[in-house]
Design a protein around this nucleic acid. Structure first.
Length: 606
RNA sequence: GGCUCCAUAGCUCAAUAGGAUAGAGCAACGGUUUUCUAAACCGUAGGUUCCAGGUUCGAGCCCUGGUGGAGUCACCA
């Protein structure tokens, strides 16, 4: 497989060995694309090797350049600027690069020793429908799965569904008390939204109850006896809300009773729980389908929340963990720069961490994965540091392969999304909106195919989110997310569509392009194509799909310019036309493949 | 308050591993279509890369100190 950068590095190493009698490996050199304002295709940077070779960078560059020109027929000319050696490659070399791409349709895929990898993403709670934050999570998870698969790994997609706990009990209780037997069907509502509405209903009723209680003697007395006399009444009751829920509230007690009954396997409660969660899953599945994602295995918290206790027992025996007098179990993570973490409550029940330890172990046993990736928002950074540290301390064989793909929260132009203020953007609404915008934009165009319009709208949405570095917090501007021009998904789709249009007219018969002399734009495009593999490699190494997104955009941009300047079907010669047809066909294939890594589908016309 | 992360054009984002004169898009202004799809292309304008030091041939990137913002620091999940 041709690797231009590697060829240059190797040639440089050879030159250094002959001229300086010093052994350097190809990896010791830095090769970049030559800046547009200078002559040349690739640039060898010699500053770094200057010390080892004990010579000025410009002299080294000159010497290597001279040697390359003498010994490598594929180097047509070189030029030295300070420590930069700008190298121009011969036409033959460029043609041979095109030959290789043509002969190996998989040239863009990195080749890595296969590993078994688990990617966990989505992982919703079952009391509310999915929202914008889930979309970022799901796109990152899906794309990570795609990218790692392209690298040759065996990747499995899993999620853990938070299907138990007080939250779903609130929805259940509200439906039970105020629902009068309505169902999603009877009211004609998407079923996860239906359950979410009962959760909201509970909160509303609870706040009403709380407000009423605040004027009671009991509440007044509590407020008068507050520790901090400076505290205003509103602030006091805001802070006391949780306490009220757990101690005084009738609704709070009912909800907690429901949770206790669930834990005691009360049949009626389990039936209700199954019914409501079933509604939620139907709704989720529709959303996943619209997003174009699927999973290999679902873990349910109701199955896993008791896991991990034997790991804790084992840890205590081996004195990795310790037990306090009250019976609670802890681990000391100060050697990792962290704190002491609780693993079991004094009453012997689990906490979140316990469950995560158990789930990781279970997955490892089930999948035998070398790597497990958790796509979870950065608010849980500390949790995952602790989780991984505990695994390492336990000496788990898979500890080294654990990775937290941590991503920043999604903000709106007005600030944070807040469910209490109703500013959370719903996933289903959002998808419907972007598709509707695409439909409106297509109004004065010929294309009316709903499937194409769907792809365009979804491309706008997905690209807008996934082009941003996952680690960074991002601002989601609903207006900008439906843009179809500029640095967008549809812009890239359009580049692909333009190519398809040419290829349709060109017919099937392909002849030789031998002897064709490439222009500068074509070298640039080949150069970009050759970088695809490195880009995907880096994206896999860093778990960063944004790199692929930015690459696809750069390629589309370069192609749009080429399309504008260079004619293919009316080329100046037969060889030019033939070469260009192969070139644009390759570009189309890279565009469709890289976009597929992002979960974005291409239309053939738009 | 401790720890972690972030700060780049009016706005949203880029910038291989420390490499040349920090790039795109949007918004603004001007131009391009009898031509393979104008969801495109070209141009103009826009920067003390938060501040102050340091490291070196070279710093948006590394180090120190500050400023501003976010997250976290539950026998919550």
């Amino acid at each position: 497989m041709k690797d231009i950068t590697r060829d240059i590095e190797t040639a440089a190493a050879e030159a250094v060995k002959e001229i300086y009698q010093v052994d350097l490996s190809p990896g010791d050199f830095l090769v970049t694309s030559t800046k547009k304002e200078h002559k040349g295709d690739y640039t060898l940077v010699t500053f770094a090797v200057s010390k080892t070779l004990r010579q000025a960078p410009n002299l080294i560059a000159a010497a290597i350049g001279e040697h390359m020109q003498r010994t490598k027929p594929w180097v047509s000319s070189t030029e030295v600027l300070q420590g930069f050696l700008n190298i121009s490659l011969s036409t033959d070399y460029w043609t041979s690069v095109m030959d290789e791409f043509k002969a190996n349709p998989d040239f863009w895929k990195p080749v890595q020793p296969q590993e078994k990898v688990l990617v966990e993403f989505a992982s919703p709670n079952t009391n509310k429908p999915l929202h914008l934050g889930h979309i970022r999570n799901i796109l990152l998870g899906w794309s990570t799965y795609k990218i790692l698969s392209a690298c040759g790994h065996d990747v499995h997609r899993v999620q853990i569904v938070n299907d138990r706990g007080i939250a779903i009990c609130k929805s259940m209780l509200a439906w039970q008390q105020f629902g009068e037997g309505v169902t999603p069907e009877s009211v004609g509502m998407k079923s996860d939204h239906f359950v979410g509405d009962w959760y909201v209903k509970f909160e509303k009723k609870f706040v009403e109850e709380y407000k009423t209680w605040q004027s009671s003697e009991e509440a007044k007395e509590l407020f008068d006896n507050r520790k901090d006399k400076e505290l205003a009444e509103a602030d006091f009751f805001k802070a006391y809300k949780n306490n009220y829920f757990n101690t005084t509230s009738k609704l709070g007690k009912d909800a907690r009773d429901l949770l206790l009954k669930w834990e005691a396997h009360d049949q009626d409660t389990l039936d209700l729980w199954r019914k409501m969660n079933g509604w939620v899953y139907n709704g989720f599945n529709e959303t996943y389908k619209n997003l174009g994602v699927e999973f290999d295995k679902l873990y349910f918290e109701s199955d896993t929340y008791l896991l991990g206790k034997d790991l804790i027992e084992d840890g205590i025996k081996r004195e990795v963990f310790y037990k306090k007098d009250d019976g609670s179990v802890w681990v000391d993570l100060t050697e990792y720069g962290l704190d002491h973490k609780l693993l079991l409550r004094s009453d012997g029940t689990s906490v979140y961490m316990t469950q995560d330890l158990g789930t990781a172990q279970k997955r490892y046993e089930e999948f035998d994965a070398q790597r497990m990736v958790y796509v979870v928002a950065d608010e849980q950074n500390y949790h995952f540091q602790a989780l991984f540290a505990i695994m390492a301390k336990l000496g788990a064989p898979y500890a080294k392969g654990l990775y937290h793909l941590s991503y920043g929260m999604v903000d709106l132009p007005e600030g944070k999304m807040k469910s209490r203020e109703g500013t959370v953007i719903d996933a289903d609404d959002l998808m419907a909106d972007v598709i509707e915008e695409a439909r409106i934009a297509a109004a004065d165009r010929e294309m009316k195919d709903p499937e194409v319009i769907r792809r365009i709208g979804m491309a706008a949405l997905k690209f807008f989110i996934i082009k941003v570095d996952p680690r960074k917090r991002m601002t989601f501007d609903p207006k900008a997310s439906v843009d179809l021009q500029g640095q967008t998904g549809p812009y890239i789709q359009n580049a692909y569509v333009r190519i398809q249009s040419i290829l349709r007219r060109a017919g099937e018969d392909r002849k030789s392009y031998e002897g064709y002399v490439l222009n500068e734009d074509e070298k640039l495009l080949l150069n970009l194509l050759s970088q695809c593999r490195h880009t995907i490699e880096n994206a896999a190494k860093d778990y960063n799909p944004a790199l692929v997104a930015n690459y696809a955009f750069a390629l589309a941009k370069e192609y749009h310019r080429y399309y504008h300047d260079i004619k293919v079907l009316q080329a100046e010669s037969e060889v030019a036309k033939e070469f260009r047809l192969v070139l644009i066909n390759t570009i189309a294939s890279i565009l469709v493949n890289t976009m597929d890594l992002l979960g974005i589908e291409m239309p053939d016309r738009m």
